[in-house]
Structures are given as C-alpha cells and as structure tokens.
Design a protein around this nucleic acid. Structure first.
Length: 360
DNA sequence: CTTCCTTTGAAGCTC
DNA sequence: GAGCTTCAAAGGAAG
C-alpha cells in the first residue's frame, strides 16, 4: 500500500491505529471492564436460555444487555472517534452490532454451523457482514434503507421476516466460554440447535438453521428415526472455522461492492476488487480512518468472542506454494497488476479512457 | 468440485 | 526487525 506507507500518508493505516490505541489508554480499561462483564452477562443469559425455554425472559435479558451496550458504546464512540465530524456509529445500526455478531459471521461452513452466515433474515444475500450494512459512514455510499442492497432484496427480507426478527440475535447462542475454547474434538453436532431441523430448543423455528435438503439421513435424525444404512461414504463433518476479522479494506469492499457492481455492471470479483483498491486509495484520510476504526473494533470484538483463537488456526500450509507460484507467474506477466492499462486490456476498453469510465 | 484471480491489511512465520 | 506468507470477501472463470 504505497500510498499509506509513503511519506505524509504513512500514518494513515497502522499508525492511525497506534494513535487510536494510545488514545484508548483509559478508555480501553473502561471498555474492557464493560465488555467482559456484559459479554459474561450475555453468555450466561444465553446459557440460561438454552436451559429454560422461557423465551420472553431470555429476550428481555438480552435486550437489557443490549441497552447497556448501546449506552456504553455510544459513550465509547464519542470518546474514541473525536476526529470525525459526524457521529458515524451513534444512532446507526452499529450499536446493535455485537448482538448481530451473535449470528456469528466468523463461523464458516454454512449449514454446519449453528450460527450460519447464510441466513437471509439476519444476513442479506451474500452473507453480508452484520456490521457493514448497518453503518451509514457517510451519506454517499449509504442511504437510509440498506443502501448497498438491492431494494427488492430488502423487500424480500421484509416480507419473509418474522415478527420476532428484532429478537432473533437472542437466539444465536455463543457456546459457553466462547467459541475460541471449542476444540475440534468437541462435538459440534451435539449442539441442541443441530438436533432439529431449524428448530431451536425453545421450539421456535430458527432461521439460521438450514436443514439439509435432500439428506435423508438427516431427515431421519430429525424425526428421531435411525438413518438408513448408507453404503456411500460418510461425509466428514466439516469443522466450523472461525474466520479472521475483516480488516479496514475488507470492510470497505463489503460496503462498496454492490455499488461498484451496479455502476460498472461487472460481476467478476477480481475486476471489482481492482476498482475498489483504487477507490480505497482515493478515499480521504478521514474516510479511511472510519474503516480502520471499524476494523479495530472488529478485532477487539473478535478477541473477546474467541479468546484463544489465532489466525494460525486457519492456515493451510499447502496453499503457500500455490500462491507463490501464482505470484511468480504474475510478476512475470506484469509489473503493474492493477494498472488501468491491464484493466482496459482485460475488458477491451478504450485505451483513452482511464479505467472504466465511472469505475474509478 | 476446487482453485485462481484481485485487492489491502493483519497476523503469523522464518531468518 | 525485516521480509515473506496466509487469509479474510466476492463470484466468475478455468481446470
């Protein structure tokens, strides 16, 4: 990232965060004292919820925690983001973020996860991050109604949204002690949510639990029957992976992707990402700082949710060779992989046009 | 079905 | 500590 690392722009990225962390000195203590306690409250409430099917009680408790969190987060944001002319989180959906986080965007393997990210009610079309669709950073990329989502999608969601949707996050349990303490040997299938097809222990249908379509063995399990003896090989259960928290640029990409797609009528992610990379560089310092701050919050929250987690957990050493090969090949073919020239060549655009017209 | 492409940033690893 | 590697997201393309 030459723009950020060179000269005056240098402290935009990491050092911006350094400043931010320095500023947090006292704040961090308050924040941690709050989050630990409230996370504990939240977790215990969820544990209680799973033990007793008294849903209204569980909902009320979560809402209480949420209210407390919103108050404290608002305070935190006022202290932490003084340099922003607009209160970007306050009054936005962001205050609900940690509770949307209970739908767990970090857990992958969709249907295998009790906290599936492929839930149309909680997460829109492409499993849009629970944070980003709700935060109007500024007026440009976001409108008041889920800006980067197609309008019809929002309507569809609204149409399918059950009346209790606002409380749905309360039904996304965090495993006691945090997911970070879950070892692969711990039976993910023994989770109560996995036992029924989309039915929570409360008996309420769970939108996050997508039953395996066409899996008759699972259907048998669902009905309390023994599965038919299946001569086919048993499918190895995919272990849920806790994803890395998104960095600032990833958050930006999630926000802007839909817009770029709409403007440029492109679908190829590689091309879109090139455009987004350039736009990222074109962002003002303040605009980028918003995303850095957001990413920092993501990491903090991720650390709290998964204390023992390490990025190493998701490392696959195999991929290194492939990636290296790919990169070497790349260097051979082009010294400027993201150049407008290459973009134009790739999409057969006019050589006189810098990038793709509106796609800057 | 899996991997690649393409971007930036964070974190892990190696020397 | 510098430099390299891997992975986060996305979805079409290619193998």
């Amino acid at each position: 990232m030459p723009q950020l690392r060179g000269g005056g722009e240098e402290d935009l990225g990491a050092s911006d965060e350094l400043i931010s962390f320095k500023d947090e000195g006292e704040e961090k203590v308050q924040e941690n004292s709050f989050t630990e306690r409230d996370l504990a409250d939240l977790k215990s409430s969820l544990v209680n919820e799973s033990e007793a099917p008294a849903m209204p009680e569980a909902v009320r408790r979560v809402q209480d925690v949420q209210r407390v969190y919103q108050e404290k987060l608002a305070d935190h944001m006022e202290d932490g983001i003084k340099h922003h002319e607009e209160p970007m989180y306050k009054g936005s959906g962001y205050s609900s973020y940690p509770f949307l986080m209970l739908s767990d965007p970090y857990l992958s393997n969709g249907s295998m996860s009790t906290l599936s990210s492929k839930v149309p009610v909680v997460q829109p079309s492409h499993g849009v991050h629970p944070l980003t669709p709700l935060i109007p950073y500024n007026n440009e990329p976001f409108s008041s109604h889920s800006p980067h989502l197609p309008a019809d999608l929002n309507q569809k969601q609204g149409a399918h949204r059950p009346p209790q949707t606002p409380d749905i996050p309360a039904f996304y349990p965090i495993p006691p002690g945090g997911v970070g303490q879950i070892s692969p040997s711990m039976g993910w299938f023994t989770h109560p949510l996995m036992l029924g097809s989309g039915v929570h222990t409360t008996g309420i249908p769970h939108p996050a639990i997508v039953p395996h379509s066409g899996n008759k063995d699972m259907e048998c399990y669902d009905r309390g029957m023994k599965p038919h003896l299946e001569p086919k090989r048993e499918k190895e259960p995919k272990k849920p992976t806790i994803k890395k928290p998104l960095n600032a640029f990833m958050l930006y990409m999630k926000e802007m992707r839909a817009k770029v797609i709409a403007e440029c009528t492109l679908k190829e992610s590689a091309a879109i990402n090139q455009i987004l990379g350039r736009r990222w560089h074109a962002l003002s310092r303040e605009e980028q700082a918003k995303y850095y701050e957001l990413a920092r919050k993501e990491r903090q929250l991720h650390m709290q949710l998964y204390p023992g987690w390490s990025a190493r957990d998701n490392y696959v050493s195999n991929k290194g060779k492939k990636k290296r090969r790919s990169r070497e090949k790349h260097q051979d073919s082009s010294s400027d992989p993201g150049s407008p020239k290459k973009c134009r060549a790739r999409f057969g655009l006019n050589q006189q046009t810098d990038w793709c017209g509106p796609c800057r």
